[in-house]
Amino acid sequence: MSTALLVSFAMTVAMASTPILLASLGELVAEKAGVLNLGVEGMMLIGAVTGFAAAALTGSAYLGLLAAMLGGLLTSLIFAALTLGLSANQVATGLALTIFGVGASALIGAPFVGRTIERLGPLLPQALAGHPVLRVLFGYDLLVYLALGLTAVVAWWLRYTRPGLVLRAVGESDTSAHAIGYPVLAVRTGAVAFGGVLAGLAGAYFSLELTPMWADRLTAGRGWIALALVVFASWRPARLLAGAYLFGAVMTFELHAKAAGFALLPPEILAMLPYLATILVLTLISVRPGRVSTAAPACLGKAFSPA
């Protein structure tokens, strides 16, 4: 394999992994607080479309990122209002959120189909990333670095800070946390909102960098893979990072195989691979009994109403 090909492969892996990492990191924080938000795919789609629309209207991909964060945030607040405010069933509400995101994003995006925008592009000046090997380190856009940095920050924050401990307490035992006097619903709302912002960014990564355009269902189920990744990582940020890059590699393999006209497997089989791999991986980590069930936050998915 030539250096150029290796560099291109490595960079594609990093870029394919970034949206999954962002979305699953947000979901991890929400789940650590005890909230199961199945609407990741919907929030990503809203982020993708609001980001693209803002970038197309203002000409700035960075304003697009801001809009995507706002879009993801607002969408997640619908979820928070229903599940935390009105203690609605989290599974059903999350599904509704995804169905809503698919419809609403297509509705908002309809006037923007076929428009082009200036993509995010590399963050650092060209000089730093001139050499192909340096490009692997310095040649990315803002979000690749942001995703990596945030993963480290979240890992540290959850583990070593007091607010992080409170968040985990809320997720492990809502009644105890409430009895001590922590605002359970406020903490959970904050966690859901954080998840919404990151899902919005993850969606925007598709429309502003990976495939700089808008098409219906642009994120193609990556939100669900992000959800699976949180389980795969046993709710640990470091493992999330490894898992996201693993999935990124699988998807890049699919892409490169397609481009090379890989004759052994038809493209449809290659397109199945990420989903089959997800099922396989979820099964493999569950083989040892008790592993997943002990790793999951104890109050995951349960409604809590202070009274």
Binding site: A96, I99, F100, G103, A104, S105, A106, L107, A110
Partner: peptide, 10 residues
């Protein structure tokens, strides 16, 4: 647009 139906149903 057709997609509005999905949003409406959600």
């Amino acid at each position: 647009p057709q997609a509005a139906t999905g949003m409406f149903q959600a």
